[in-house]
Every structure is written in structure tokens, then in C-alpha cells.
Simulated scan of single mutants.
Amino acid sequence: MSELAKWVPEGVDEEVPSAARLYDYLLGGAHNFAADRALAEKFLTALPSARDVARLNRAFLRRAVVFMAEQSVRQFLDIGSGIPTVGNVHEIAQAADPQARVVYVDYESVAVAHSQLLLEGNANATILQADLTQPAAILQHPETRRLLDFDRPIGLIMAGVFHFVPREADAPAIIAGYRDALAPGSHLALSHFTADISPEEMAGVVEVMKRSADPIHTRTHAEVTELFTGFELVEPGVVGTALWRSDRPEQAADEPGGSQIYAGVGRKP
């Protein structure tokens, strides 16, 4: 089987761009199609700092996983995990503890296929193809139950994915479906596009993404904060990705694109 055939599952329509493959392109990855790259260029026209936005979101993910590992979290459920790239959750978590367990979830078939290749031979990590708006199906999946112990803290990760959930889907209720299954001491790490800072640019992004399989729905600071209902926000609360426990706090405020996505981590008491 050719390398291309391994990561392009049968039935994938290469003419319909997806957010996972667009994100992969913005991060410098190679698992994307011409339609994804063409849409990404329009995305960059609407939001010139898009590559920085993607990089900073990825950096937030790393810092959040490191933080949770420091809180003795050793199991992770990464919802909307996307196409693997440098610094995947299992790599970060298993660097802290080789026995750390990770369940990835994505509904995009290329992301799932490439993740399966990456995880071959790793008994403590797996990938499910599922819809994040159906918590019960993910939480009760045999692979989830095989790897994760719901009597112990779990790190629930929703980095850069909930802005694909439309308003009519009741985002807080969806997150509650996950939250209620988690043990005390569990954490939620979440990041989300906003139009609070640059409404015109984000209006352009929303328009561009209407041409993909994954339209974007921005939310305000108050709406993103509401998604942490039932969790105690850790410092510094819900802030731009660049500002969340930055490795370089003296430069964080000046990072291009550092406030286009809100980010935060909460702990379930």
C-alpha cells in the first residue's frame, strides 16, 4: 500500500475541504488536499495572522497537557484531536508518565486514518471516529472504557474544536454530558475562536469557512466562559491563547493572533 493510500481512506471527497486538513496545512503539515490549501489561502487573506493563531493554539494545547500532568492527571480524552503533528497529547503525557493513557476522537476520516498509523504499537493510546456532539457514544465506546478509568481524574481536551458546534446545538449541554461523567479532580482544557477582538477579520473567516465541511461559529468571552460551568477556572482564567501561562510572558501580549482564540483550563471540584 502506498503512503498516500494509507492516510486517504476510501470514499474521501478530496474536493470538499475540511477544518482538520486546513489546520494541518496552516501548521505546515502534509496531510491535506488541493481544495484544503486553496481554502486555507482564502482563510489567510481574511485572517493574515492565521498561521500564528494555529501555532499559538497548538502551544496552548501543549502547556495545558503539561499543567494537567503536573496535577497528577494520567488519562486524557482529546475531543476533535485533528491530524497528528508535532507535540501530540500522548507524546506530551507519556513523556511525563509512560503509562499515561490517551483516547483521541475525531470525525474526520483522514485525521482518524493518520492517527491510527501514528498509534500503531502504542497500547496506551487509541483513536475513535465519532461526533463530539454525542457524548454518550464516545463515553460508552468500548475503546474509551478499555483505556480510561472514570473513577479517576481525566483530562478532557477540546482545543480549537467547539467553534464548529452551531449555537442551536446547545454547547453548554454537550459539555455537561462529558463533565457529569468525570471524577472530581478532572480538568477541561478548551480553546475557541472569538470575534470580540477583530470582528471584521473574524466575519471574513466565518464567510470563508462556509465553503468547507466545517463552518465556524464564534462565541464571546462570556459564552466561552459559560462552557466551563461546573469547573473551577484555574489562573489566569479565559484569556487569549498567547496569554494562558505563557512560556514567555513578557512577549505574550504582543504575539500576532494571540487573542483570536480564547483558551482556559478548569478543574472539576
Rank of each mutant, 00 (worst) to 15 (best):
P269G: 10
F162W: 10
T241A: 15
E201W: 02
A213M: 05
F164R: 03
I127S: 03
A100P: 00
A113W: 07
S109G: 04
P9A: 09
D214T: 14
A263S: 13
E235K: 11
A93Q: 03
A5H: 12
F60S: 01
H90W: 01
L148M: 08
F60R: 01
R101V: 01
R179E: 05
E223C: 11
A40I: 04
H90L: 02
D78F: 00
Y178N: 06
L27N: 04
F33C: 09
V66L: 13
A195M: 04
V102N: 02
A181P: 03
D36C: 12
S259K: 15
V105N: 04
A5T: 13
R55H: 10
Q116K: 13
E226Y: 04
L56S: 12
S246K: 04
I261Q: 07
I175H: 05
M158Q: 10
R146I: 10
R245E: 06
A203F: 07
D149T: 07
L190R: 11
T225R: 11
G155M: 10
G155V: 09
P84K: 01
A123R: 14
A252Y: 07
V8L: 15
G258H: 05
D24L: 02
L4N: 10
S186G: 10
D97F: 08
Q260I: 06
D254L: 04
A130R: 14
A95Y: 08
G11C: 13
K42P: 01
P9L: 07
G11W: 13
D78W: 00
L22I: 15
E232W: 02
L147Y: 00
T225A: 12
K42M: 11
A195I: 03
G237C: 09
V12F: 13
E108S: 05
E223Q: 15
V89R: 02
P142Q: 12
Q140S: 13
A130I: 07
V265A: 07
V224H: 01
R179M: 02
A171Q: 12
F162S: 11
N124W: 06
V102G: 02
L119N: 00
L56T: 14
